[in-house]
């Protein structure tokens, strides 16, 4: 019997072949049809298109014709910008909320009301106040990634075991030392879980945000190709969105492993 990872890989590959085969078959023009009609491109067409795009991902031929690499880079820059800003705000505030029952109770109603708002609902307000479409999409990323980080940080900090706090107290650590040397490492795995959730949400939201504001970015690109009725390109960019999203998630998962500990 083959080892499990190998068997899983074989099964994965088989599923891929079946799916691609079915897709290819479904998109074939039936023999003898009078007119080909509008059809989805098959995987072979998409692959050919992907090859062309990936051969020169960073070409720039004017505002409406840029390589996939440039578009993805715009989106990534916005996501990381908004995400970092959110982390800078969310982790310290989460600390305060987690450590103080007063702040927790006082801020709870705001969090409860603000959290369920779709980040895109902020867009008109952001456009009006910031008056810059790129900065507005960064703001939208900021507002959508702040909640998971804030809530997880607060949760992690509030849940630090009493024993660890007692260790800090019996060793006469100051409040700042206790926060940095005991509470932060103790809560770090939970904080990182929040950060991982946040990066996933950010990547979901950026596509929609860029469709709205236009100009550059992978979301704009998808919509633009739809307007061009270039479905091969749409499918190709969908796959690229998935790929980059996966890489972002993996990066965070790896970072989280560094602070992981077994209790």
């Amino acid at each position: 019997m083959l080892p499990l990872p190998l068997r899983a890989a074989i099964l994965s590959l088989a599923l891929l072949v079946i799916l691609l085969g079915a897709w290819e078959l479904a998109t074939q023009v039936p023999a003898g049809a009078a007119s080909p009609g509008a059809r989805l491109p098959g995987p072979s067409k998409v692959a050919v298109h992907a090859w062309q795009e990936l051969r020169d991902p960073f070409y720039d031929a004017g505002p409406n014709d840029k390589g996939i690499g440039i578009q993805l880079a715009y989106s990534l820059a916005r996501v990381l910008g908004g995400y970092m800003l959110a982390a800078l705000v969310a982790v310290p505030s989460g600390f305060v909320i987690g450590m103080s029952a007063l702040w927790r109770k006082a801020l709870d109603p705001y969090i409860q009301v603000l959290r369920p708002i779709s980040p895109l609902a902020w867009m008109p307000l952001a456009l009006f106040v910031i008056r810059d479409s790129a900065a507005s999409s960064i703001f939208v990323i900021f507002i959508c990634s702040i909640w998971p980080m804030l809530i997880n940080t607060a949760f992690g900090v509030a849940g630090v075991r009493r024993d660890y706090i007692n260790v800090a107290r019996t060793h006469e650590l100051s409040r700042v030392e206790t926060a940095l040397r005991v509470i932060l490492p103790a809560a770090a795995p939970t904080i990182f879980t929040g950060m991982r959730i946040a990066i996933g949400i950010s990547w979901l939201v950026i596509v929609a945000a860029e469709m709205l504001v236009g100009g550059t970015g992978i979301g704009y690109y998808v919509w633009n190709e739809w307007n061009n009725l270039n479905l091969s390109s749409v499918i190709f960019s969908i796959l690229m969105i998935g790929l980059v999203g996966m890489l972002l998630d993996q990066a965070l998962a790896r970072a989280a492993r560094l602070v992981q500990y077994v209790d």
């Binding site: 007692n166 260790v167 602070v259 077994v262 209790d263």
Partner: peptide, 10 residues
């Protein structure tokens, strides 16, 4: 010295 060792696990 606490009952449950209370070492910092990280």
């Amino acid at each position: 010295i606490f009952q449950n060792h209370s070492l910092l696990p990280w």
